[in-house]
Design a protein around this nucleic acid. Structure first.
Lengths: 210, 210
DNA sequence: AGAACCATGCAGGCGTGCTTGCTTGTTTCC
DNA sequence: GGAAACAAGCAAGCACGCCTGCATGGTTCT
């Protein structure tokens, strides 16, 4: 590496330092705090303490609180996309639609969605965050739809199929929202079972699945 | 009137005073502020100013901030129940299921649901509020389900019908959640159309409707 | 040795809760 | 019936605590 390696362009890319781990821990802590303490309760000090560092360290990586949570937003989006893709890495379960629906719904009941939910609600009234959240959420939403279509073996060229999948994802969001207050697993499972059945009828046989 | 009419029991029942109007305005302002500025942005001063009274007045009616929003929770629950019952006062439209679904979804895109959403998310991390919100929301949820079943002319004795309606309401919640960030009416309408169709198939003919 | 990384101390701003004083409406006594 | 007396509604000010942002040292890696 050349001598002026510290330049590393702009602000990002802290290279292969241990500080990168600190940044990572800060982001993870921010997400965890969002899920546990909500937006107002996730102060910089709380996040820093959970990350095991001092407030100054957080200040160093993210000068302002908004910087921290803006980064957290992107981090959550990344994680959610990753969790989505990791659902069925080989697409083997594309046949069992009920399992696919259940897995999708499960994504909306975990801490990641919980954190995202807090971010949405907070961002809905914070001009700066709102833009970034809506943009990233649109991206994650599109990816969710794409993966759902793929896993379900749905043929979007047929009328109504696209809207059915969209409605399914919206239902998953609604179930996740309900889980925020009371985690009623059995109820969720019954609803998932029934809607998986309805969806199965609506989608018909998978086009290329035999 | 008897002599000791001033006794009027405990603290409640402000009788025929104008202060009752102030209390009402404070609650309305609290709900409106929740929908517009969110939980953290709905400070006592903001609510009081919107209600057109001083902060001291609000303090008089609701000693603590939590008292104010605890009352607001109940108020929102009342309003939502009322709006629900007012959907089809005569049940005349029980035949057009698409209209019923659309009306139900509309309830979840208005300012009342918006305020309720902020309350849920805030209450999910505020021990005191959480109990009251979950309790009242369970009540409103049950009433929503009951009215939905009635308006849809669904026969809950048939298997899957109950879960279908629950899923519909969850989808409505999810659509309302999505509306928080981007109000995509056309998309919502397409989803509603499709799922009204699916639901129509799932529910079959109304038992006593024709 | 230099730079990045990290920890600590300080000032400003804001929101809540409490206390004090004023206005309005109702009760009670002459 | 009218006026004093009382309570309730209402407004303004003050004290405390917390969070944010900035500035200043100390530490570790290159």
């Amino acid at each position: 590496m050349g001598g002026v390696s510290t330049a590393d362009r702009a602000e990002r890319v802290p290279k292969q330092d241990r500080s990168r781990a600190t940044r990572q821990r800060l982001l993870e802590a921010a997400v965890a705090c969002l899920a546990e303490h909500g937006w107002a309760g996730s102060t910089v000090l709380v996040v820093a303490e959970r990350a095991g560092v001092s407030r100054g360290a957080a200040q160093h990586h993210f000068p302002t609180r908004e910087d921290l949570f803006t980064a957290a937003v992107e981090y959550v989006a990344e994680e959610r996309s990753g969790a989505l893709r990791a659902l069925f890495p080989d697409g083997a379960a594309a046949g069992d639609r009920r399992a696919v629906v259940a897995a999708l719904v499960d994504l909306y009941t975990g801490p990641l969605f919980r954190a995202a939910l807090h971010l949405w609600v907070a961002a809905s009234n914070e001009e700066q965050l709102r833009a970034r959240v809506t943009e990233l959420e649109a991206r994650v939403g599109r990816e969710s739809h794409r993966i759902a279509v793929e896993l379900l073996g749905a043929d979007e060229s047929r009328p109504g199929v696209r809207e059915s999948v969209q409605g399914l994802l919206d239902m998953a969001r609604g179930l996740g929202l309900a889980t925020l207050l009371t985690d009623d697993g059995p109820r969720r499972r019954r609803v998932v079972d029934q809607w998986a059945r309805l969806l199965d009828d609506a989608l018909g046989q998978a086009p290329d699945e035999g």
